[in-house]
Design a binder for these strands. Structure first.
Lengths: 199, 199
DNA sequence: TAGAATAGAGAACAAGTGGAGAACAAATCA
DNA sequence: TGATTTGTTCTCCACTTGTTCTCTATTCTA
């Protein structure tokens, strides 16, 4: 759904207005702000913004014009479980999870739940949640989510040599694995960890 | 539950008013503040705020307009560092820290930063943040913040015997310590852990 | 250049909203 | 105890506000 120029302008003004005022504007107020004299005309634009998902639909309710909350405030998406040697087991729909700002990088992040003990010596336990920053490059020694053969996903410490990639588990009973560079795609880098001791 | 404009305005005024005054206002006072002449009208709005979960329900009590504490938005207090064998090293003023709901119990919680490696075998590392649920009792095997002789604070796994308390570190190079029951006060129980891998 | 898409004006409508005020019960005060 | 304050419930009313029309002007596009 594409916005026309006027619609973009109206959306921009709506955003600006929201910063100054506590209350969402009514149609009449917005008309004044835009130099319109007909609510009907404005309504056509608002309907387009609703269709575009930028403004909350209000079916006849009189609450003022509200913007759809940007999903950022809610948290970052929890995507599912990651177990060494399997594809990421996605949950049906990404639920937002509130995460301390401390753990967020500049780039978009997401959350996975760790399955298995392959990183236990790093203090990453079965059931822990890890915050992953989306990135396709990593520095040696960073812990990454790596996709192998576009199929299996795994959380490991990475070491990159010319032509090959070594993925180190942190578990004395497991061995590092070598792959040719082409087989491995980095999906993100570990930024944070969250563990619940709930009963 | 969406608020109308007036309801939002009244909520805002309520918040502002509560900062100045100690006593919650009566309906009549609030009516004066809002320029209303009918308590009935005000009550309709208050009811909407209660339904929205912003104001505590007050069944008939007087001076009962109280805001629901929105603890979620603010986060829970970060109090300082805990290192085995020292008092908790408090930060000058408790900063709120946003924490996933997952980690919160029913009771109030707070956050400490762990100093030292005494719980490393449990995957609790130097620099990790721990979410502690305020409690004075613990079950055997739980990890607790214990205050010894009202002086030193420490994070350990607890074992309670008649007349004595054993605090187990999770570090093969350290030994469990025994104390008489009177010397140990439980300050809270570990609910969650947060670790940042920021550079 | 014709037709489509975009923008706006203005009328008319229905429903939601905000408020007044009466009446009542419980809590509080004198 | 009786009087008053205070929260609650109720009905009634004015009017704001979102919506839907139709009609017109302008800009863009094939």
């Amino acid at each position: 759904m594409k916005l026309t120029r006027r619609q973009q302008e109206i959306y921009r003004i709506l955003r600006e207005n929201l910063e100054h005022c506590q209350l969402p504007p009514t149609y009449d107020e917005l008309c004044g702000l835009l130099g319109l004299s007909s609510r009907g005309s404005l309504h056509k634009h608002i309907r387009a913004l609703v269709a575009a998902g930028l403004v909350e639909p209000m079916d006849g309710q009189k609450r003022g014009i509200r913007l759809v909350e940007s999903s950022m405030e809610e948290g970052i998406p929890y995507l599912g479980r990651i177990a060494a040697g399997r594809p990421i087991e996605a949950v049906s729909q990404a639920q937002p999870m509130q995460v301390p700002e401390l753990l967020l990088g500049k780039r978009p992040c997401y959350v996975l739940q760790v399955s298995g003990d392959s990183m236990i010596d790093e203090g990453i336990h079965d059931g822990d949640y890890v915050v992953i920053e989306q990135r396709e490059q990593a520095r040696d020694g960073e812990i990454v989510v790596a996709l192998i053969d576009d199929e299996e996903a795994t959380l490991k410490r990475i070491e990159q040599c010319p032509g090959k990639v070594i993925l180190h588990p942190a578990n004395s009973s497991m061995r590092a694995m070598d792959y040719t560079t082409e087989r491995v795609r980095i999906q993100g880098v570990l930024r944070g960890l969250i563990r619940s001791y709930g009963q």
